[in-house]
Simulated scan of single mutants.
Amino acid sequence: MALKSVPARPPESRTTVGRLWSSTVGKKAVMAVSGAVLLLYVVAHMVGNLKAFAGQESIDGYSAFLREFGQPILPHGGLLWIVRTALLVAVAAHMTAAIQLARRARRARPAGYERRPKVQGSYAARTMRWGGVIIALFVVYHLLDLTAGVLNPHGVQGEVHSNIVADFQRWYVVLAYTVAVVALGFHLRHGIYSGLRSLGVASAARAKAVKATALGVSVAITAGFLSVPFAVLFGIVR
């Protein structure tokens, strides 16, 4: 007895969320919203890192506050696990939408160009791809280094200042950190502008202002993240 193929669900039978996700506009909106969540975390993380300039007590106390927040309602470190779960969902949504949009764009032009022009759009797309790979690899290293302490020379949980100083006294770690943060800056510059455009904020009349804002935010975040490792490397933070 031959098995009958199950027909695909017609678009009108899908839920509103399903129709939104299946559309290009919906996927771009998901990328924009998930990217905004990740951007907020990046800014908060950078501000927390800058407490290293205020001394050991400041940054270690901040780390303890994050782990103890919400007790006894939340378990020790409960807030951090809530944040990590939200970030994992945002990253999964962001990457899934990005991959599906890239595949959809390739299907839209199956025949390759004989001579592909070097346009700004293709440059930005290439930057986002390799930047995303560098950032993903660095996040894995960063978690093993300063979160789990496995790759850190000091590696004592709660002693954030000592871990940072032990880490960034090594020039090659600072170099790797710099490459990752610069890649993050490029990713943010294009991502902020694209996200605002997907959400309808970056209209033609506001395009220049939005681009300047995206550049300013990405430069500020890049400088903020790089200030701590270089301050340790040159003995300003010790």
Rank of each mutant, 00 (worst) to 15 (best):
K27L: 15
A148H: 15
V150F: 13
V179Y: 02
E68L: 12
V182Y: 01
A124Y: 06
L74Q: 03
S227Q: 10
V30F: 12
R238H: 13
V232R: 01
A148M: 15
A220C: 03
I221M: 06
V17F: 15
A102L: 14
R107Y: 09
P110R: 13
V201K: 08
T96M: 08
R84S: 13
Q100Y: 12
A205V: 10
F168C: 01
V47F: 12
P72M: 08
V173I: 06
L40E: 05
A223W: 07
F186W: 08
G185Y: 01
W21K: 12
A32R: 04
V237M: 01
V83Y: 01
A52S: 11
V133S: 00
L226M: 08
I164M: 06
L233R: 09
A108I: 07
G18D: 14
A207C: 09
T127K: 02
R197T: 11
L40R: 09
L199C: 07
V228S: 07
L199D: 03
R129F: 10
V91F: 08
L137F: 02
Y141K: 03
R115G: 11
V182E: 02
V17P: 03
R197I: 03
L88P: 00
G131F: 00
L215M: 07
G78R: 06
R19M: 10
L80R: 08
I164E: 01
S198P: 02
S34R: 08
N163M: 04
L39N: 06
T213A: 13
V42A: 15
L38C: 09
S218A: 14
R197Y: 05
L74T: 05
T24L: 15
R104C: 07
R104Y: 13
E57G: 00
K211E: 13
A209F: 06
K51S: 10
G149R: 04
V91H: 04
V6F: 05
G55Y: 08
H187L: 06
K27Q: 15
T15V: 06
S227W: 11
A214E: 02
A86E: 08
L233F: 09
M31L: 14
R126T: 11
V219S: 09
A44M: 11
S23E: 10
V160R: 03
H187Q: 02
A209D: 09
V89Q: 00
P7V: 04
L20H: 14
K28S: 14
R104T: 15
L88I: 11
M128P: 00
V17N: 08
S162Q: 13
I135R: 00
H161Q: 11
F225A: 06
K211P: 00
F225V: 09
A176Y: 02
E57M: 02
S218Y: 02
R84C: 00
A97C: 05
V201C: 08
I221C: 04
